[in-house]
Design a protein around this nucleic acid. Structure first.
Lengths: 330, 330
DNA sequence: GGCGTGCCTGGAAACGCTTGCAGAGTTCAG
DNA sequence: CTGAACTCTGCAAGCGTTTCCAGGCACGCC
């Protein structure tokens, strides 16, 4: 930077101000500095910059699961806008509550990032407060809409789209496979998607049968087990609503093995529109995952640029009817 | 750090040396310093450290695709060992050749990382040379074994396991759906897995029919299209070998829609052991994806610790027979 | 014409760590 | 018993920026 300053005929102080877009720098001077920097193909050292009190140019992204499509897609969208803004992405995988505590405890210690984006998990108020206190912005995506910057779908609405679809087809006895994340006790989807199920039934005047609600861990395999439980009921349902496509896909495998036909013997609907859903002909409620990542990224950029604290936004979902749902066999 | 030094009753110089594992520090002193650091929950500032000439404690991970299971799993394994070693992961998504060039051009500018891990892509010699010149180590995983630090499967062997399985079942006319990555011209899987197919046929004395080899872009949808092409042949195969499970799953969807039974009318085998393969009852050649990430991480740690340059290692694959393959209908 | 007001700019002190250099002990061979 | 060779530790000089504080200057108003 000293070279740049010299070449531009100014002091380092001025050069710094010109480069970091500070006010109170004459237009001519700034231009000269920028030109000099350009010629010397000079790029600022983030280390030194940060050390002296500037920004790090880095954003931490916290993910609970790395190998699930949902989080990958979210990350994909997010990364694209962050990279375009010349921000580096620091990836943190927090598998369980311990990891999480660890993360929120250590991160602020020595400020490594300017902001953090939390994917697919709610952020506790206390954690939020702590980060904001240190001037680290925070945005959430793919979790639940809260009154802080976040973007996600409306689980209640999505769930209703799925269940109402089954009801509309004429199903009167509908099972639900609820998925919970073992690592994350307060998983937000659970409540919303479960509530949607109950509300839809109630709305249609259908009786609520606790037997029809089975809760398992997230994942295809568990979805398969849940379906077995449902099939073993004295009076099995004629349709199943799964909290996610992976779970639904697992359920379909059980049905296939049991020799039942889909949708003739059993309708299945999921949520997400996982790429596999199309291949398996699974009816589902599509959510714009990649887009949620993008929006979260933009929201963060705005915050970083000094924008005011936004509220959470909710993106729309859309029912995608495929071959896994149909009217019940009379 | 000054606090830590004071608490441990040593100078900052000694504290620094103790913390960064330098030689010439008495065991007792080091222990005292570490204890003090622990108590104060002190973590070193990478910025300052790097500024003063130390390491950054950061590793760049380069991924071509974020939302594919394979890369997610790889990343998962890698991240776990890196995090355990207190290294931060800087994520870079390089979608196409332009991104890639950009990455390798900009990264070394101001040294942001101590090392880079490239996932699922080969590293060109020139890129490798450039990084090593700057003292940045490099490791590859999930790509092709090369004579530089890398870990991956033996595509040739994996392909043979798959095709030989079909041959053993009695198939004489076997199709191949080769998948290429549009973004990565020199995709390494292609050659190895294709060669395996040809070698297996030749080994069994079966004729090579170019019609039976169809090449498509990676992905379930394209796998489905490829299967259509194969089915429209004058003399369709009785079994199909797909370069990856996603592609195979796509092919299965086409078969299902065409009303063909699996495996009675057509056997299908893939490679990867994608979680969905189990749900779809797909026979496949399993590769330890997560483990490859772990190994790559360990390899990197060794390199960072001053270990000598390792050669590439290849991890074993295993045929997993499920319901999608069976003898041909005589 | 004098003087208060802003706008620019430069000097210099951090920021938190690493490391070359040198001094003080310690050990060990001659 | 002496000197050489080590091992361990402290001092202080940076590393590349930012920012606080002041000084200079031009401008406009009384």
């Amino acid at each position: 930077m000293a070279d740049v300053a010299r070449r531009a005929g100014v002091s380092m102080a001025t050069a710094s101000r010109a480069l970091s877009n500070h006010p109170h720098v004459a237009a001519g001077t700034r231009a000269r500095v920028l030109a000099a920097a350009e010629q010397l193909s000079y790029v600022i050292s983030p280390e030194a910059s940060r050390l002296a009190g500037g920004a790090t140019g880095r954003v931490a992204v916290v993910v609970p699961h790395l190998s699930r499509w949902f989080f990958g897609a979210l990350l994909d969208g997010l990364e694209s806008v962050l990279r375009a803004a010349d921000l580096d992405v620091l990836l943190y995988h927090v598998g369980d509550a311990a990891d999480r505590r660890d993360f929120f405890q250590r991160l602020p210690a020595r400020r490594k990032v300017d902001a953090v984006v939390v994917l697919g998990m709610p952020v506790h108020d206390e954690e939020r407060a702590r980060l904001e206190l240190m001037g680290v912005h925070i945005v959430a995506a793919g979790g639940q809409v809260e009154n802080y910057p976040s973007v996600s779908i409306d689980d209640l609405a999505a769930g209703r789209q799925a269940v109402d679809h089954l009801i509309l087809l004429g199903h009167r006895r509908i099972g639900m496979i609820a998925a919970v994340d073992p690592a994350e006790p307060g998983w937000p989807e659970g409540p919303g998607r479960t509530l949607a199920y109950r509300a839809a039934l109630a709305g249609a005047g259908l009786p609520a049968d606790p037997e029809l609600e089975v809760t398992v861990e997230w994942g295809g395999r568990h979805g398969a087990e849940a379906m077995e439980r449902l099939l073993s009921l004295r009076e099995p349902p004629t349709a199943v609503y799964a909290h996610s496509d992976e779970v639904a896909l697992g359920a379909m495998r059980t049905l296939r093995r049991a020799g039942l036909r889909i949708p003739a013997d059993m309708s299945v609907v999921g949520i997400d529109d996982h790429p596999m859903a199309e291949l398996a002909d699974l009816t589902t409620v599509a959510q714009p995952v990649h887009d949620q990542g993008v929006r979260a990224g933009r929201m963060l950029l705005e915050l970083l640029a000094g924008g005011s604290d936004t509220e959470g936004v909710s993106v729309p979902t859309r029912l995608v009817v495929r071959g896994s749902t149909g009217p019940p066999r009379s």
